[in-house]
């Protein structure tokens, strides 16, 4: 039930209470409450649960995680495949 999905903010309406916005989930657009991410900008990604943005998605952190995973991959490639490492 705590499912939350990342989507891209395409429009923000700050004139209403609570703050609402249009969020695009891979082509499906929904009206989402943005009240708890007051600094959000169009183009930002938010993580959405039951119609509410719980947080903005920190793209820098996401890319850093992916970079570390990638670095681990290339390190393994240099050292050979550790598929069956010695125990």
């Amino acid at each position: 039930m705590c499912l939350a999905v990342p989507g891209k903010v395409v429009a923000i309406d700050r004139s209403v209470t609570p703050i609402m916005g249009t969020v695009n989930f891979s082509g499906v657009q929904k009206q989402i409450c943005l009240d708890w991410v007051p600094d959000v900008k169009e183009g930002d990604y938010v993580v959405v649960h039951v119609g509410f943005a719980l947080n903005t998605l920190d793209e820098g952190e996401a890319l850093e995680t992916l970079r570390i995973l990638k670095e681990m991959n290339s390190l393994d490639d240099e050292l050979g495949d550790p598929e069956e490492p010695p125990r």
Binding site: P6, K8, F25, S26, Y45, A62, K70, N73
Partner: peptide
């Protein structure tokens, strides 16, 4: 979907499992 598909990469999963 951006920020989902990247975290389902099969090759990276294999490497992580090897690390574990």
């Amino acid at each position: 979907m951006k920020f989902i598909d990247e975290f389902r990469d099969r090759a990276a999963a294999g490497k992580l499992a090897a690390q574990i």
